[in-house]
Amino acid sequence: MSALAAVTSKKKAARFVGYAFVLPAVLFTAIFDYFPMLDGIWHSFYRWNGNNIEIFVGLGNFKEILSDSVFWTSVRNMLFFLVCNIVLMLPTLVASIVLFRIKHSRWQYAYRVLMCIPMFIPGIVIMLLWQFLYNPQYGFLNQLLASWGLENLQQLWLGDPAMVKWCLVFIGFPWIGSIALLIYLAGLQNLDSSIWDAAAIDGASPLQRALSIEIPLLKGQFKLNLISVLAGAVTGYNLQLVVTNGGPGFSTTVPGLYMYQHAFGSVNADYGYASAVGLLLFLIALLISLLSMKFIRSEE
């Protein structure tokens, strides 16, 4: 075997090695992410109960969804949560900048540990806890107000259609996303320290510094976090499912929950209809993601 041939065969082998490395991830993504997605698109044109009824209905599902006022109510509710969730990205951003400015490494480490705590209490526990706290008759909040002699401030909380959305948003208090925080922090720490020295000499105020240096430099990280917040707000419904089941009335029904309720546990269960809702949501989320990417350009 000539040396040249050996090199070529080695190169060939190397090529195959590349595939071997990425194949598992490609397969997992294809089978468990893409296939269900395409299947969902396919079935959104059917009336389908998952079993014996599978009737092609064309755009029938979409027509019905778009003419259902409940769906539109759910979209409006979703927009409310969407705006809240975007605004509530701020505490995490602020916390990460403050945390970054703590130069004492021990303290910084300790605070970082503290900020990771929300990840370690199961979300469902927080939701069930708040469900109890909000109860108007025997819950904690109204008792607290009573013990302060503020009975007139007592609320129905989840029972008040005007208030229930805010109650759900407040369950996330104080709105610190641990992974997002770590991503911001890593971003700040990776920057060249000369930037900070220059800023210190400038004598800029802490707020000016944040606005002119840190925040612009975190655009790329912000975009990454924004995408997950957007997708979560447009398509998520865990909170609504567990705490209010969409009520009272439709005041906390979001499109994801609307989809869920049409697929599972309803006497009129229709997976095709639910898939069509899913497809619409998917398109909305995609559109919003693309728009937001267009508006925020990251530094290269």
Binding site: I31, P36, M37, V234, T235, G256, G278, L281, F282, L286
Partner: peptide, 26 residues
């Protein structure tokens, strides 16, 4: 390599909500 990477990367931008029911069936 690039197309394969983009295949995976693109899914990050694609919301998973549509997946629940078909995933269940799968």
């Amino acid at each position: 390599k690039e197309p394969l990477y983009w295949l995976i990367f693109a899914k990050m931008m694609l919301p998973g909500v549509l997946n629940l029911i078909p995933s269940f069936v799968l």
